[in-house]
Write a protein that binds this DNA or RNA. Sequence first.
RNA 1: CGGAGUGUAGCGCAGCCUGGUAGCGCAACUGCUUUGGGAGCAGUGGGUCGCGGGUUCAAAUCCUGCCACUCCGACCA
Length: 482
Amino acid sequence: MAKKARTAITPTREENFPEWYQQVIKAADMAENSPVRGCMIVKPNGWAIWENMQRTFDVWLKEYGVQNASFPLLIPLEFMNREAEHVDGFATECAVVTHHRLEKDENGKLVPAGKLEEPYIVRPTSETIIGDSMSRWIQSYRDLPMKLNQWGNVMRWEMRTRMFLRTSEFFWHEGHCAFEDHDGATADCMHILDLYEKFFTEVMAFDGFKGVKTPDERFPGANETYAFEAMMQDGKALQAATTHDLGTTFAKGCNIKYQDRDGGEQFVHTTSWAFSTRAIGGMIMIHGDDDGLIMPPKLAAHQIVILPMVKDDNEAQVMGFAEKVAAALKAKGIRVLLDTREMRTPDKMWDAIKKGIPLRVEIGGREADAEQVSCVRRDLGRESKETLSVEAFVEKAEGLLQAVHDELLSRSRKFRDDNTHEGSSVQDLKDFFGAGKIGFMKVPVTLLDDPALEAVMKEYSLSTRCMPFADGGEKVIIAKAY
RNA sequence: CGGAGUGUAGCGCAGCCUGGUAGCGCAACUGCUUUGGGAGCAGUGGGUCGCGGGUUCAAAUCCUGCCACUCCGACCA
């Protein structure tokens, strides 16, 4: 019977992109919904990705002089009041802790008891509680700059959630720094944004647009927000990371003052910046295909999977050889998975494909006899299969992984460029999005003053993404967004 | 928080209109044959039908209240 060409993921991206996204996560066994409203369970295959992200970026932060610390998950409600805009931005999505004990009622059911005098909120972000510490830790200009970061989770009570992209609880790092002046704060925002760009391109294999947010898209309480905006395969934008110049706003709210060189009292200038598990969602939507996830090699828990194809009479030989190959690759520092599970070979193959493992090495009787391996690249598919000697493969493996990375990066860059269009009028936007086309449209910033703009933005659910540095701040990107 | 929809085995669904002791596919498990791009045959196990009331001799099915989730909007890393 002839086999039908069949994709591992149903539906395909073209048929139903949001549903495809969900199915990719499921097929790759990365995460699932939990009994807790809006919160996901990150499974080992998903968490391993986050661990690799943390490991890499944490080193970079420390090189820049950032110190890690940990602040409470709960923030006194009153702290939120310290910055008016901040309150407006987050008040509607705070989980509130009001009790500290459970008791059994007359029916034996547990009910909250021990009402707190002062309720706490579960942190939606930590500006206020870190600012409180800074106000005590900073006395003099000699204490500056102060660069802190915490890896942790936060909670924002979202109306509508989507795994990785928007969940009520999510994981991130949040940097909080204090400087003597505005220049220091701006330089910090720019430096971290550059680190983000380096991280997304060199580790996660996708590019985006660095730029400044328009005022209405700023972080609540920020003077200026800078962002890295990436494009998904459905043409929507994803804000992958942001840095915020908070001016002296939080310094005033939290009373963070220092004595300057002349003995005068000054407010510090603070910044904050973050990326989150959301970037994983972006990675999925940028690189994935109709057979599932494609992992950028630097992020992948397993960079190479070895599939031993044994028959009854050659099991010892094939397995022995496969173990030897695995050991040689591990000695090179490559993360290898030798798949010895009791499954049919084709099922193992599809499993490796759906999980997006960058390189698949097949070793059967033929290879074992000849001391060879067959290798297939996930990004190029089975046509890329090549058979070569063990020595040659081990020598070449790191290069192959780099080639997969380069391919993913250039592929996503091409997609981004092919789908970024120039426009000059509100009518251009209407024509483009009205025709159902996907992608970004870049228009002159002067268009933001056009009274006709708002209606069109609303009609097609558009938002301003950023004013790219590359255009000298004279253009603004308008797109649909996640 | 508005509009719509769905809750039945691990997953996907049928059954509901027209009440009568719960079914299909996939997955799992066992055995044999298979194994280089999604195997075949035979067999086995698994469900308080989201939760609570009501109608009835009898409720997955009808009525009612509640809860959860999904999708579309508004809000957002």
